[in-house]
């Protein structure tokens, strides 16, 4: 289901209250004009899956952190910060996860140019 990012945390909390106690994955798709974050949560006992889709503005992409509700969100959020340049509000750890990019375009966005010369920090 599609929801607004301001209502995301309360929705996740409500889902966790009804048995969805397992976070499968958080991912983002860049559609060119906007981005969409997708949260997959699961109720293991009843074998139900739920997908939350959050549309993000391209100019101001931020998400609230879900780490207090689902600790598993930690590394997924760090990956999104790094690969899509999304600001995750409310996080303590902001260290990049996979690489150390030199302040360049986030590599998984569609605007990333393949042939441009990019340098990474050593």
């Amino acid at each position: 289901m599609e929801i607004d990012r301001k209502g995301l945390l309360s929705k996740l909390e409500a889902l966790k209250g009804t048995g969805f106690d397992y976070l499968v994955k958080i991912t983002v798709v860049d559609y060119g004009k906007n981005m969409q974050a997708v949260y997959f949560v699961r109720d293991i006992a009843k074998n139900r899956d739920e997908t939350l889709e959050v549309n993000l503005d391209y100019k101001d992409p931020w998400l609230p952190t879900a780490i207090d509700i689902y600790p598993a969100a930690d590394w997924y959020e760090r990956e999104l910060m790094e690969m899509f340049g999304i600001e995750i509000k409310g996080r303590i750890t902001k260290r990049l996860l996979l690489e150390k990019w030199d302040g360049i375009d986030p590599p998984f966005r569609k605007s990333f140019e393949w042939n441009k010369e990019y340098r990474t920090q050593v």
Binding site: V24, K25, T27, V29, D30, V38, F40
Partner: peptide, 19 residues
């Protein structure tokens, strides 16, 4: 569990996210 989340384009994946 590996989850493949794919958004398709006619010829190639538009976005592939691997869990």
């Amino acid at each position: 569990e590996c989850m493949m989340y794919m958004v398709s384009d006619p010829q190639r994946p538009y976005r592939l996210s691997i869990r």
